[in-house]
């Protein structure tokens, strides 16, 4: 077990590079889906306290659209695709040509469209991760909830809860050229997955 506080810088760099390649693929998939340019910002690989993680998505009671996928297999973990409510509405307008009259509520169709977008992004991210590491992983059916950031992130932080008060995550931000939307993709591998990821890449865990 590796407490997330003590991850050496060169290992964080490797995780960041994995995130870079994974989210590069996800950005391409999103761009094809929307038929418009999508920019990806350089991802972060970092250890943050639970409360800091909640703060990067706007604070514990900030309302967000969260699509959550569980990653099972050789290096299990949790994936979140998180959008602001108005960003999600604009993304839907591009994707489904549905211009919703209601700016706060979401219809069943909008829920499934957003889940599908999350599914496609997570799938392309994960495929590149599997190619790089040779580890096999599968994704659960995406789950969506529009609720407080703290509440939706609770579940994803539980695997880290048993080892400390921090979690190690790889997060990337997507934006389109016109700033119509901005979305965050967060990968939180389970604490026990890091060793497998590093071993698969031929990186020694202890130095």
């Amino acid at each position: 077990m590796h407490p997330p506080e003590n991850v050496p810088a060169h290992q964080l760099d490797i995780l960041k590079e994995l995130g870079n390649i994974g989210s590069g693929h996800a950005a391409t998939a999103l761009s094809q889906l929307l038929n418009k340019r999508v920019d990806m910002q350089v991802p972060f690989a970092r250890s943050l306290s639970f409360n800091e993680i909640v703060d990067i998505v706007g604070g514990a009671d900030h309302i967000v659209v969260a699509i959550y996928l569980r990653m099972d297999g050789e290096a299990p973990g949790n994936i979140y695709f998180i959008l602001e409510v108005d960003s999600a509405k604009r993304l839907l307008a591009h994707f489904t040509q549905i211009h919703s009259a209601n700016n706060k509520e979401f219809t069943t169709l909008e829920y499934s469209a957003l889940s599908e977008i999350g599914n496609i992004l997570a799938g392309s991210y994960l495929t590149s991760l599997m190619e790089l590491t040779n580890l096999y992983m599968s994704l659960s059916v995406p789950q969506i909830n529009i609720d407080m950031a703290g509440a939706v992130l609770n579940d994803g932080l539980i695997p880290f809860g048993t080892v400390g008060d921090q979690a190690l995550l790889i997060d990337s931000t997507f934006k389109d050229g016109k700033q119509d939307f901005d979305a965050r993709f967060i990968l939180i591998p389970d604490p026990s997955s890091y060793e497998k990821i590093f071993l698969s890449l031929g990186v020694a865990m202890h130095e």
Partner: peptide, 23 residues
């Protein structure tokens, strides 16, 4: 009161914890 935190307060103050999900 953040996630995994514990606080005590006296009158007239307010203790607040936000974004409880499964917590």
């Amino acid at each position: 009161v953040g996630m995994a935190e514990l606080k005590i307060a006296t009158s007239p103050h307010i203790l607040r914890t936000s974004g409880l999900g499964s917590c």
